[in-house]
Amino acid sequence: MSETTFMGVPREKIPWYPTIDYDKCNFCMECDKFCPHQVYEHREGDKKLVVANPNNCVVFCRACGKTCGPDAISFPSKSEILTLIKNLRTEEMVG
C-alpha cells in the first residue's frame, strides 16, 4: 500500500488514522471486525489491539469509530488534515 496516494499526496505523508484511548477500550474488537483495510491488529499483553497499519486507513473515513461502544477511538481534525494536504499539494506542484 506504500505507493498509494490521496489527492495526489503520498499516503504516508498524511497523518490520518485512528487513535485508541486505552483507558476506554474494552477490546471488544468491533472496530477491527468492521475495518476491511487491516488497520488494526491483535497483540498479546495489555494492549490486545493496536493501530498496526495506520497508512492503510482511508483518509477521512471514521466509520470504525462509529462502531465503538465505549467511544475509545478518535481521529485528527478534518480541517487541519485538509490544510496539510493542500500545502503538500502546492509543494508537490512547485517541487
Binding site: F34, P36, F60, R62, A63, K66, T67, K78, L82
Partner: peptide
C-alpha cells in the same frame, strides 16, 4: 458543511459509510 466534512451516513447489511 465543510468540504470533506460529514454529510450523514448510510448503512448497509454489510457496512457503514460516512458520506464525505
Amino acid at each position: 458543511v465543510e468540504q470533506f466534512g460529514e454529510l450523514g451516513t448510510i448503512e448497509s447489511t454489510k457496512s457503514l459509510l460516512e458520506i464525505v
